[in-house]
């Protein structure tokens, strides 16, 4: 088969045997474009955030460690954290609105999408670490409160114990926060950047235009 014949063979293929396309003007569940997947992820994250916000608020308020005067301090920290999160979510909302308008039908739109996604990923990264840093002391206080009972039973010096395990404990905690954050960001967003990068790289591939 010669290369010049290929076009002829190709164009002779009749489409009469193809099934007519029926009235199914909904998106496919199996094939999804990155924008739809990211938007879905963002809605899921926002719902999770709201649920965890009220859950933590309720759980911590019932914990003995935060009762009485400590509870008001906690509410102040929590309110600050809530405001910081709101500021971040406003940025995510802007990103959501921007990508909703983009259609991946041209190279220009693909570049815009990649640019927006990169910025959003950096904001996400800062948000995740900041959230983790704020959440860490709260979690530690709860754990300390739970652990205190066993310390009293076993007659262990809490201060000595804390000094001996705190540095490694904090390091391990941060390592897991780092691992979880990076893994989550990669699977939720980074994978799309990688895919778009691959296509853009292929499109921008410098060719010798004098050939």
């Amino acid at each position: 088969m010669k290369i010049d014949n290929i076009q002829e063979i190709w164009q002779s293929e009749s489409n009469n045997q193809d099934q007519p396309i029926l009235n199914q003007l909904s998106a496919s569940e199996k094939f999804q474009n990155p924008i739809r997947k990211i938007k879905r992820n963002m809605i899921f994250e926002f719902v999770c955030y709201l649920l965890s916000f009220f859950l933590i608020l309720k759980v911590v308020a019932r914990n003995e460690a935060f009762l009485n005067e400590k509870l008001s301090n906690y509410y102040i920290v929590f309110a600050v954290q809530g405001m910081v999160c709101l500021a971040f979510f406003y940025q995510f909302y802007l990103f959501y609105k921007t990508i909703s308008k983009v259609q991946l039908t041209t190279l220009k739109n693909l570049v815009i999408f990649r640019y927006e996604l990169k910025i959003a990923l950096h904001i996400y990264r800062i948000y995740c670490y900041l959230f983790a840093i704020i959440a860490l002391p709260i979690i530690l206080v709860i754990l300390f409160q739970i652990g205190q009972i066993s310390f009293e039973i076993n007659n262990i010096d809490i201060v000595k114990w804390l000094v001996s395990i705190a540095p490694s404990g904090i390091l391990i905690t941060f390592f897991f926060i780092f691992l979880f954050t990076e893994l989550y960001l990669y699977t939720s967003y980074g994978i799309y950047i990688k895919r778009v990068d691959k296509i853009l790289k292929e499109m921008e591939d410098q060719v010798d235009e004098n050939v």
């Binding site: 293929e13 489409n15 007519p20 396309i21 909904s26 998106a27 496919s28 199996k30 094939f31």
Partner: peptide, 30 residues
């Protein structure tokens, strides 16, 4: 429709997946 069927055949190996890609393309065009 021949355009959609041909594109699906080029980009997807699994015949079952082709129907989904055709649906997705139709949706995006719509």
């Amino acid at each position: 429709r021949g355009i959609l069927y041909k594109i699906a055949r080029i980009y997807v190996d699994d015949p079952e997946d082709r129907a989904d890609l055709i649906q997705e393309m139709t949706y995006q065009v719509w």
